[in-house]
Structure formats: structure tokens, C-alpha cells
């Protein structure tokens, strides 16, 4: 019988931490070079501009990746990294911690744990070829400096957009976007 504030003994999970030894290998394979070699010195966290103003702790992310604690993929702070690469430049074990974070983001994306803001950027690229497409106000500004209304990119040559979508399709990204946009309805 559990009283208020006390955990029901039936639910105690001693010794049940889940470790997945393959996680770090997935991270290294996706570009997180040397990630397995982290010796937790903390140079990365100390170099991180986001670490100064949020709960993002690069070292802890690397710890969880190394031990294989997959709950790191659910961490909303994982998406706070601005990819400034300061940690990677200073790491004494030459670990690309930024790329390890990007790798974890890739794995999370496959599990549809990616923020909708990212999906929206993919949507813009899928539709127009640009992550930040042109608009009316800008077209006027373009003409003012002597440029055509649209740049000579996919905006002027939309026939190239289908190629872009083909790549999004074969890599499985389009599907992820479809499913996530459907779920968010």
C-alpha cells in the first residue's frame, strides 16, 4: 500500500537502466567521429554558448550517447545546439561533438522526434527549392538594386524542384514529413 509521495514498491526499477551499446556506433557511422573516445573533460560544455543560457550540456549528451541511454533522443535540449563547432575545435580527444549531436538528431528524426520547425523548413525546400523562399516585398527590393525579381535559382527554373523532391523521397524524408504533418492535425 503506497502512501502519498511514496513510490509503490511494485514500481521500483532497480538495476533496470537500459543501455544500448549500438547507439554510439550509429553516432560514429553518421559522422560523429571519435565519439567513443570521450573522457568527459567538459571542454565542450564550457565552450558552448547555449550551455551558458539553457540546460544543454554537451558533455552529458556525449555521456548518454556513449553509455547508450536512448532517452537522449527525447531531450528537447538536443535541438538547442546552434552547430557553432566551438566544442569540436577545442576537444582534446578530437571528437566532433557537434557532428555527434547532429547524428543523434538524425536518429531522432527517423523516430519522428524532430521539432515541427525543422519539418516546416523541409516543406519549404520541397515546395520551392529554398528553405527561405522569396516574397513580394523582397521582389521590389531586388528590382531596386538592379536584379531581376527572382534569382536564377529554382525560383526562375522550377523544373529542378522535382529532382530535389526525388532526393527527399529516396532518403525517406518526405515520408517522415507526411506522417508528422498528418499526426499534427
Amino acid at each position: 500500500m503506497a502512501s502519498e509521495g511514496m513510490r509503490d514498491p511494485k514500481h521500483y526499477q532497480l538495476g533496470k537502466t537500459q543501455f544500448d551499446p549500438d547507439l554510439i556506433k550509429e553516432v560514429e557511422a553518421l559522422g560523429g567521429k571519435n565519439a567513443q573516445m570521450c573522457y568527459q573533460c567538459g571542454t565542450c560544455t564550457a565552450s558552448c554558448p547555449m550551455g551558458q543560457r539553457s540546460g544543454l550540456r554537451v558533455r552529458t549528451v556525449m555521456r548518454k550517447a556513449n553509455l547508450g541511454m536512448r532517452d537522449v533522443l527525447d531531450d528537447p535540449d538536443l535541438w538547442l545546439c546552434t552547430t557553432c563547432y566551438t566544442c569540436s575545435d577545442r576537444c582534446p580527444r578530437r571528437i566532433m561533438a557537434t557532428d555527434a549531436i547532429i547524428a543523434l538528431r538524425n536518429i531522432a528524426t527517423r523516430e519522428k522526434k524532430v521539432p515541427m520547425s525543422m519539418i516546416k523548413i523541409m516543406g519549404a525546400i520541397s515546395k520551392t527549392g529554398h528553405g527561405v523562399p522569396n516574397n513580394e516585398a523582397n521582389m521590389k527590393n531586388r528590382v531596386k538594386v538592379g536584379l531581376p525579381e527572382n534569382p536564377p535559382t529554382t525560383h526562375t527554373y522550377p523544373e529542378y524542384i522535382k529532382d530535389i523532391n526525388k532526393i527527399l523521397e529516396v532518403t525517406g524524408l518526405l515520408k517522415i514529413r507526411e506522417e508528422m504533418e498528418a499526426e499534427s492535425q
Partner: peptide, 26 residues
């Protein structure tokens, strides 16, 4: 417990600010 990531200097006092993570505190 944390490796020093970088050091900056106060141009007037010439004191130094040492930046590291206290990894034990996180």
C-alpha cells in the same frame, strides 16, 4: 573537475576569467 575551455582577460584589471564546466555539478 573540468578542463579549462578558454581564458579571457579584463582589459583594465588584467584579471583573468577561466571558463570550464564543473562536470561533477554539471
Amino acid at each position: 573537475r573540468g578542463r579549462v575551455a578558454r581564458i579571457t582577460e579584463d582589459p583594465i584589471t588584467k584579471n583573468l576569467t577561466v571558463t570550464a564546466e564543473d562536470t561533477l555539478l554539471g
